[in-house]
Design a protein around this nucleic acid. Structure first.
Lengths: 214, 214
DNA sequence: TAGATTGTTAATCGATTAACAATC
DNA sequence: TAGATTGTTAATCGATTAACAATC
């Protein structure tokens, strides 16, 4: 019916930053904020702040600015934070366990409800009350529990195999930490996190400095 | 003297992806590649591949394409992978320990040489042969060892304090995992990793799908 | 030499910034 | 009402794509 106008990915990436800063403002008891205030804290122009919000219809009032509480809530809705998203972690290695122990995700309504691995010696262990189960029982688990997102923290070599299984089980969101760009069918959303890519960008930026100063 | 032309950050972010794919090609024994081949694998246009490399003068030959070995090496140089970068981890919590155990970074010439924390009970422990030391001894450590990069994996509440110390010690690169955007003086390069931001972007992309299909 | 593919310039597209009328 | 600040359009800037001459 109403054809959704595509919002640029660059805008979407800025939303969590707005959200984080609004959370701070709320905690400090500040109730009103202008595009100029926000822009200073976030390091963009006031124009961009207004333009970003304009993509969603605009959340402010002329002459006043934005209501912190309301803006926080609306951005949260856009990002899907108003309802809990359930996650399973595939791969209980160092990174998988660290992510399971991380408490920040739940604050943002992303909750881990199961961890899966193939190493028999750790099956049955619990991390923050979340059980480590055998990868073979993932299928049953998904049938009995609603799972929104699978987090892939297996080695590069098994990532593709795991991806296939996950897609077959009908999971629609994937957060991939294996150092390979996973691609799936159109209805599956994949976010690839490449930690060493980011480290290399840091390496470049550090090296480049002397040149730009000339 | 020669004023370096600024290369866009978007180009730099693509370099690690080229690099990863070239590593694969090398491993498969492939010696030659064209901009068209690369573009297909990486999901960009051939034009963009050539334009990206043109920023650095171009690495190919007309009528032939690119020599895999040479291109791999040149991109590695740009990213600063030809010499070892030393790193310390500040904060030996779940994430800090997981990063210390991660072996991929060393393959890219980023080597962790020390881990620091303030909790007395874990001081002296070793992770993959890397000692956990008291945060108070960081200053001495930096005097005796060349440290390129500090990885911040402390809670949000102590991140700013840690940042101050690190900057005073003269460390020039910071890889920050605390959920706050750290900013430092111009000569210090900071890469902020916000895992939950990425999760929220995934959340948005999953939600948005039904609309775009209308 | 003929064919292929780059290097490089020009055209297009999209994102950011500026401007200002609308309005609280 | 006057002042402030948004919503929204227009102008600018930068990134991507297209085109093609250079050349291996």
């Amino acid at each position: 019916m109403s054809v959704e106008i595509k919002v640029s990915g660059l805008v979407i990436k800025r939303l969590p930053r707005y959200y984080r800063y609004l959370t701070n403002l709320k905690q400090m008891g500040i109730t009103r904020v202008t595009s100029s205030d926000l822009s200073k804290k976030i390091g963009v122009t006031p124009s961009q702040v207004r333009q970003d919000f304009f993509n969603f219809g605009g959340f402010g009032m002329q002459g006043y600015g934005y209501d912190v509480e309301f803006l926080h809530q609306e951005i949260g809705k856009i990002l899907g934070l108003n309802e809990m998203n359930t996650m399973v972690i595939i791969g209980a290695g160092n990174l998988g366990q660290a992510l399971a122990k991380h408490e920040n995700f739940e604050k943002r309504s992303f909750k881990t409800i199961g961890i899966f691995d193939t190493r028999d010696d750790i099956i049955g262990e619990q991390i923050r009350g979340i059980e480590i189960m055998h990868f073979g029982s993932l299928s049953d688990f998904v049938k009995n529990n609603h799972v929104d997102i699978a987090i892939i923290t297996v080695p590069k070599t098994s990532a593709c195999e795991v991806l296939d299984t996950i897609i077959k089980l009908g999971i629609k969101g994937i957060w991939n930490f294996a150092p390979i760009d996973l691609v799936g069918p159109g209805e599956v959303e994949i976010e690839n996190i490449h930690l060493s890519d980011s480290l290399m960008v840091l390496g470049y930026n550090m090296k480049k400095k002397p040149f730009t100063q000339m």
